[in-house]
């Protein structure tokens, strides 16, 4: 398992390739990448991501450990950035390795659902007109009930 909370950009191809190459007994690698999406008005200047150093890493490790306990996984990777990002920038990625694809897909979805509302990150959207904290969505909380 590797968890990285970082300000720096990451290289999706290099991370995915390195993650995938380490496992000879894993038949399935799933990766998901979250990207900063512009607002409907097209005026997002940047997104600033705040986090809780210390708790963030612990929360992500706990979520990843839960996934490893629930599914047959060979490995888990979580990278999540903080700081100022621009539309189109990659915010985060998860990768899962499993002998079979069902475990890899489901575990990746589980990781995403949990890290959206149980890992201490907060997004703020900055436009020319001002800045707004992104509100948590009820559907993100509801998504946890399926697990």
């Amino acid at each position: 398992m590797r968890i990285s909370v970082q300000e720096a950009a990451f290289d999706l191809g290099a991370e995915a390739s390195s993650f995938a190459s380490g496992h000879k007994d894993m038949g399935a690698i799933v990766t998901f990448t979250g990207v900063v999406r512009d607002l409907a008005r097209g005026d997002l200047d940047r997104m600033v991501i705040e986090h809780y150093p210390g708790m963030t890493e612990k929360a992500l490790e706990k979520i990843a450990s839960e996934a490893q306990a629930r599914w047959n996984l060979g490995d888990v990777l979580v990278i999540h950035r903080h700081g100022a990002l621009e539309p189109g920038d990659m915010i985060m990625m998860v990768a899962t390795a499993a002998p079979h694809r069902k475990d890899a897909f489901e575990a990746a979805e589980y990781l995403m659902d949990y890290l959206k509302s149980r890992a201490p990150f907060w997004k703020k959207e900055i436009t020319r007109d001002g800045a707004d904290w992104v509100a948590a969505k009820d559907e993100d909380e509801d998504a946890l009930s399926r697990w």
């Binding site: 979250g34 210390g54 708790m55 890992a119 990150f121 509100a135």
Partner: peptide, 29 residues
């Protein structure tokens, strides 16, 4: 609220606690 970096409830005890954090619902991912 988080007490010693674990999410908890407002009725949680503060006995022996070093750190309490307050924040809005999280928006990671």
């Amino acid at each position: 609220v988080a007490v010693d970096q674990e999410l908890t409830d407002f009725d949680a005890s503060l006995d022996g606690v070093r750190e309490v954090a307050f924040f809005p619902p999280m928006t990671g991912g």
